[in-house]
């Protein structure tokens, strides 16, 4: 039981963290609340499904190709639909919801509403420190952790990362330092979408695919972002861990009440917000832009 809770928390938490990090990246740089963020996650799942089940590709190349495809789609959406609207914050909100709905309906039309599944890379299970884990879970978790670490390095140890963080703080000042902010924003949109797609591609073998699968993770990552503090990578990871833990607790401790997992996580979020309005790791600064 405890082991199950732990494993589920780790796998879900890592996936949530990745989604949340991507979401807060593009929010930070572009001040864009991209509600279509988890739609990319769904698209990646379906893309893998098509490539593996229909085109007959192996899982790993299918995954790489899916991430690439989804990123290209996302960048196109960003350039054509979101970027020109950036000054209209609420319009961006609607456009991204509508985009997510468009993707959902397209998937519904081409794949139908049934649940689909994707084969994994590895069969069987292994035991780590006496805990039984399926190989697929172990691999997924490890890869997610590696990607998260890579993102952290990208943001904190590279020139591009510095530019991203500077742009997120003050776009005009970044501009004056010779940073091409619109290019940086586009690249950030690409990285953000790629993270979402990678999360989708990695957890696809563990989950079932269905066209509405974007809505639940969306509310969850919004809760995580608020919990962890907006624009804080560390916060996103801790927030994801908390939410994933509370979810698995609900699922395993009250199996008949597993429909409550979303409500329970959100309740935790609200309680945290009451105590710390800027989130666990947010910095309360009077910002000016």
């Amino acid at each position: 039981m405890l082991a199950n809770i732990l494993v589920t928390t780790l796998v879900n938490g890592a996936a949530y963290a990745m989604l949340a990090v991507g979401f807060s990246l593009i929010f930070g740089v572009g001040r864009i609340i991209n509600l279509a963020h988890t739609a990319y996650y769904m698209l990646a799942g379906y893309s893998i499904f098509t490539l593996v089940r229909v085109a007959g590709l192996a899982y790993v190349p299918a995954m790489a190709l899916s991430i690439l495809l989804v990123t290209v789609v996302a960048v196109l959406c960003y350039k054509l639909l979101i970027d020109p609207m950036r000054e209209h914050e609420t319009t961006v909100l609607i456009i991204t919801i509508a985009l997510a709905l468009v993707f959902q309906e397209l998937m519904l039309k081409y794949f139908g509403g049934h649940f689909r599944s994707v084969p994994g890379v590895a069969e069987g299970s292994l035991s780590i420190l006496g805990v039984q884990v399926t190989r697929q879970q172990a691999i997924t978790c490890a890869v997610l952790a590696v990607i998260l670490a890579a993102v952290w390095l990208l943001l904190h140890r590279t020139r591009f990362g510095l530019a991203v963080r500077a742009t997120a703080q003050d776009m005009e000042a970044a501009n004056l330092m010779g940073m091409d902010v619109s290019r940086i924003a586009t690249l950030t949109a690409a990285v953000s979408a790629a993270l979402s797609a990678a999360a989708g591609a990695l957890v696809a073998p563990l989950n079932i695919l269905e066209p509405h699968m974007w809505l639940n993770p969306l509310t969850i990552i919004l809760a995580i972002i608020v919990l962890g503090g907006m624009g804080s990578i560390k916060g996103s990871i801790y927030g994801a861990a908390i939410i994933a833990l509370s979810e698995s607790l609900v699922i395993f401790l009250i199996p008949q009440g597993s429909f409550l997992k979303g409500a329970f996580s959100l309740l935790i979020m609200i309680i945290v917000l009451l105590i710390r309005p800027e989130g666990l790791f947010g910095v309360a600064l009077e910002g000016e832009r």
Binding site: L162, A166, D170, A173, V283, L285
Partner: peptide, 17 residues
């Protein structure tokens, strides 16, 4: 207009972009 959440050194580094 400093990059307010960045450290002083990171600010300077950003200047040297």
């Amino acid at each position: 207009r400093p990059f307010s959440e960045l450290s002083v050194e990171e600010n300077l580094k950003a200047g040297a972009y």
